[in-house]
């Protein structure tokens, strides 16, 4: 495993049939752990508690779970009321319904109040699959990261989801957590470091820095393996926290590699790539390429078919790297 940094403690079977699990699975186990450790943690859901893996939490602490029905606006503001009373509420739904339907509530009541509300959205991105465009939120990172006081975290696998959820409960103020529906490789371990706002550099390479979040991190590692066969060594940065973004690590990577490619399961506009570009445009003038959805809605199909069709593949990352290197 050339270039993989030992201190990241990634799974030894990283490239050999890693376990598959949806990132949201880590959310359910984290909520159970938080339920045990802090009686102020409460959960809310808008008729999707099974999808959010809250079953264990609900059966253990039924009085700390608030089923708010198909009424997301009310759910978010109930969470605000709970937070302003000292609770640590996790409001949960699909990303298309929360945050997308509830932007006003999140802007004024969550963020302007600096309420200690955690928003946990599952079924984000194109990997939602057969449900089609209505259910494939591709704009949430952009919308959430422009809100003052909001933090935005996109975990890379189920284990990182668990850490991100527990870390979110431990800091004061609004946090948006973004999970996926579909099974994805689990390749970090309990020993892999995780700190909100700190990029994890998973692979060392001097030629190009690939910065990714969510399911695109693993795909970036696959791309780096492929590039290595062509004599191109890529650094791979897991930028799980989109806001506050790790400016220092990004500038360092841009300086060392001289070229940057970003990859996200989200619109190209306003997401991870934009956040990275905002940092680099003010410091390191390096060629850059953003991989994401090209200003369009998704459609029905299987996850892998959609990832292929919309260009979220290791092949496409390899191509983007080769192009960006020509501009060096």
């Amino acid at each position: 495993m050339k270039g993989i940094r030992a201190e990241m403690k990634l799974a030894p079977n990283l490239f050999k049939n890693p376990e598959l699990k949806a990132t949201r699975a880590g959310f359910g186990s984290a909520m159970t752990a938080l339920g045990e450790s802090d009686e102020n943690v409460v959960a809310l859901c808008a008729d999707l508690s099974g999808s959010l893996k809250l079953g264990d939490f609900i059966s253990k602490w039924p009085d700390r779970f608030f089923q708010s029905g198909v009424a997301e606006q009310n759910m978010v503001n109930m969470a605000v009321g709970l937070a302003l009373s000292g609770k640590i509420p996790f409001a949960t739904s699909f990303g298309v319904f929360m945050p997308m339907r509830t932007l006003d509530q999140i802007r004024i009541s969550v963020c302007y109040n600096n309420a200690n509300v955690k928003l946990a959205a599952s079924h984000t991105g194109i990997t939602v699959g057969p449900d089609g465009a209505t259910h494939q939120v591709l704009e949430d990172i952009a919308v959430m990261r422009v809100l003052p006081k909001m933090k935005v975290i996109v975990p890379a696998d189920a284990i990182e989801t668990e850490k991100a959820t527990i870390s979110a409960a431990k800091i004061d103020g609004p946090v948006y957590l973004r999970f996926g529906r579909q099974n994805a490789p689990v390749y970090t371990t309990k020993d892999t470091p995780f700190e909100i706002g700190k990029i994890n550099k998973l692979r060392d390479g001097k030629d190009v820095a690939i910065v990714a979040c969510g399911v695109m991190v693993y795909i970036s590692l696959l791309a780096a393996e492929e590039l290595s066969k062509n004599g191109i060594e890529a650094s791979v940065l897991n930028c799980h926290t989109i806001k506050p973004i790790d400016t220092e690590a990004l500038i360092k990577a841009a300086k060392e590699c001289g070229a940057v490619v970003t990859a996200e399961e989200h619109q190209k506009s306003g997401g991870l790539g934009s956040a990275v570009a905002e940092v680099l445009v003010e410091s390191e003038n390096v060629p850059m390429k953003i991989i994401g959805i090209e200003d369009r809605f998704g459609e029905s199909g299987e996850s892998d078919e959609l990832m292929e069709k919309y260009g979220l593949t290791s092949t496409n990352i390899v191509k983007a790297v080769k192009n960006v290197l020509k501009r060096k």
Partner: peptide, 28 residues
């Protein structure tokens, strides 16, 4: 603005939000 002035329980302006916040406070 709650963060500015003591005695304000919640920042408010956009309508239709205070009753939900109150429900959350009552549940707590």
């Amino acid at each position: 603005s709650r963060l500015d002035l003591p005695g304000i329980e919640t920042s408010a302006a956009s309508l239709g939000q205070g009753l939900s916040i109150s429900v959350g406070m009552a549940l707590a």
